[in-house]
């Protein structure tokens, strides 16, 4: 499958309909998931209405990790099979992952504010997400700093894989650090303890985020391919 997609022309043909399709699906899922979560799902015994923030916070947390894993896969393909398209895919995904991580951080602090009494609490999960956010910034900054695009892709791939290897270590040390300094945070943000009635809107919103990522990443890739084509033709004095 990888080599099938590797040829930019075929990718452009395929993504021409795939990107808008993902956008439509994402819109539908958002239109279904958000009201479902806001009005047609139960409040929570202790948190009250604020539990509804889970439907925008948890999918963002899941996918900011998922997107980084996707970038890791693309980086591996880029370094091992040397597909230029893999670099473009990883670069297209990074800013979206950063936005998702940012959404996760902001909604997490809003969610925690009533119980913590402050707008930012150095809770273990949010701190790990903040580190992931900085990793995204580092990756994007590296791309921006290197002129030679082909080399930038491969160097960013190495950085991405180094980050991927480090993520579990960072997660472990931040969790150990957060239990060392304060008792486990009071609210249960995710995991198995979600009431069944809440799973519906949560999974719908998770799907919405996923297809939104698909649409944005594919259009980012299309733009990058066209940009490279235009710049290359300018370089040869064509346009």
């Amino acid at each position: 499958m990888i080599s099938y997609l590797a040829n930019p022309a075929r990718f452009m043909a395929l993504s021409a309909w795939a990107a808008p399709l993902c956008a439509v699906i994402a819109a539908i899922l958002f239109a279904a998931g958000a009201p479902w979560g806001l009005f047609y799902s139960p409040a929570e015994q202790f948190q009250g209405e604020t539990v509804r923030i889970m439907y925008v916070h948890v999918p963002a947390a899941w996918w900011s990790l998922g997107i980084y894993a996707f970038m890791g896969g693309a980086s591996l393909v880029s370094l091992v099979w040397r597909h230029a398209l893999a670099d473009i895919a990883a670069r297209a995904a990074a800013p979206i992952g950063a936005v998702f991580a940012g959404v996760c951080l902001v909604t997490g602090s809003i969610w925690g504010a009533p119980t913590w009494g402050t707008w930012w609490e150095w809770d273990g999960r949010l701190t790990s997400m903040l580190v992931l956010f900085v990793i995204y910034l580092g990756y994007i900054a590296l791309w921006a700093a290197i002129e030679d695009e082909e080399r930038a892709g491969k160097l960013a791939a190495i950085l991405c894989l180094a980050g991927l290897i480090n993520l579990p270590i960072i997660k472990f040390s931040v969790d150990w650090w957060s239990t060392l300094h304060q008792p486990a945070s009071v609210f249960r943000a995710g995991g198995s303890s979600i009431a069944p009635a809440m799973m519906g809107p949560l999974l719908t919103m998770a799907g919405a985020y996923l297809f939104l990522f698909g649409a944005l990443a594919l259009s980012n890739m299309r733009a990058s391919i066209q940009r490279r084509r235009v710049e290359r033709s300018r370089m040869e004095g064509g346009a």
Binding site: V134, L142, A145, I146, A156, G163, N166, I170, S173
Partner: peptide, 23 residues
């Protein structure tokens, strides 16, 4: 190593490496 080709890459190195300094 990844920023060796970048002029005045010092700040960029700091940003890139800070997450690895966390543990």
């Amino acid at each position: 190593a990844v920023t060796a080709g970048v002029k005045r890459g010092g700040v960029l190195i700091a940003l890139i490496v800070v997450p690895f300094f966390a543990p």
